[in-house]
């Protein structure tokens, strides 16, 4: 197990390095600089500013400086908001984004699995068609449309939940709903189809022949096997939820990391771009790693502890 984790850590570091390098290449190849929009500045001021942020150095020096800032985890101050360091921005934004993401995942996974199981058990019945109808809607409607619809109906017309911002649990309901519906629908459909397949397996019949109760059969014998494909797509879903947070945070004016991420690219705020990208990628890579570990725990046939491979 330890060998496997070490190996994976190494791969994670390499992946992160590739992402950092690609981001750097993309960053310097976009035309413009952080100071382009400032109309009043003359060329001397521009040059001074660039030299202050080392932007006048050759690209390979800039690249090394970036690497250094990442290794020391000190991205320096934001160019656009010089009174704030990138670390401060991340420290303020990340907990909020993380909260939104985690709540979304929990809601999506639990409701998706329950919906899928119910649909599978009432196969071809009314509840099945209802659940799958909701799931198709959930997959088809983009989260930003759903978000606007939710605000219009539940916040403006009926005034049940607050319109925007991030203060109390009530504030969390609409953004979470908007963000969780898509992944929930995917999980529900997947759980339903694998559950239906698992329920026809011989070991389920064998469990019935042992005289076990229906609930025990579903929880102990069927669900665990049915969840494996769900765990497999969790990685993709996590990435989807992560990018979803950018949009949802904008719509609900949530002061999370997504806002800085989008703003920094528009304003060519290089340190912030680097900081948010590294942070998001590292987070996603770690989550994917945890998914793989969970997969090994769920399915004993996947030996993560023997050869150090998957």
């Amino acid at each position: 197990m330890l060998r496997y984790i070490l190996k994976r850590l190494l791969i994670m570091v390499i992946t992160l390095w590739i992402i950092i390098t690609l981001t750097f290449i993309l960053m310097v190849s976009i035309p413009g600089s952080p100071f382009n929009s400032e109309r009043s500045s003359n060329e001397t001021i521009q040059a001074n500013l660039e030299s202050h942020y080392n932007l006048d150095e050759p690209y390979h020096i800039q690249y090394l400086l970036y690497l250094k800032s990442i290794v020391t985890f000190d991205f320096g101050p934001s160019i656009k908001k010089p009174d704030q360091s990138v670390n401060e921005l991340l420290g303020r934004g990340f907990p909020i984004s993380f909260e939104l993401g985690i709540v979304t995942i929990i809601v999506a996974v639990i409701s998706g699995i329950i919906l899928g199981i119910i649909a599978a058990l009432r196969h071809n019945g009314f509840i099945d068609y209802m659940a799958m109808g909701i799931a198709v809607l959930g997959i088809s409607i983009p989260n930003f449309i759903l978000a606007t619809l939710l605000i219009q109906q539940l916040a403006v017309n009926f005034d049940i939940f607050p319109v925007a911002t991030w203060k109390s649990p009530a504030h969390m309901v609409l953004p979470t709903l908007a963000l969780a519906t898509g992944p929930m629908a995917i999980i529900a459909r997947l759980t339903r189809s694998t559950m239906l397949e698992v329920l026809t397996q011989d070991y389920i019949k064998m469990a019935r022949a042992k005289g076990l109760s229906p609930w025990k059969i579903i929880i102990k014998h069927a669900l665990r096997n049915a969840l494996m494909p769900v765990v497999t797509i969790m990685g993709t879903l996590l990435a989807g939820i992560l990018t979803g947070t950018f949009v949802i945070e904008q719509i609900f004016a949530i002061p999370g990391m997504g806002k800085y991420f989008v703003e920094s690219i528009n304003q060519r705020d290089y340190p912030v771009i680097m900081g948010t990208t590294v942070f998001y990628s590292a987070f996603l890579i770690i989550m994917l790693f945890l998914v793989d570990i969970a997969y090994g725990i769920l399915d004993p046939r996947i030996k993560v502890n023997k050869q150090g491979g998957e």
């Binding site: 469990a207 005289g211 014998h221």
Partner: peptide, 19 residues
């Protein structure tokens, strides 16, 4: 089931829960 009458299935490769 399982107490008074028990059953053995054809294919032992699929009759046991893999997890």
């Amino acid at each position: 089931r399982g107490v008074d009458i028990s059953m053995i299935f054809q294919d032992p490769m699929t009759a046991l829960n893999p997890t």
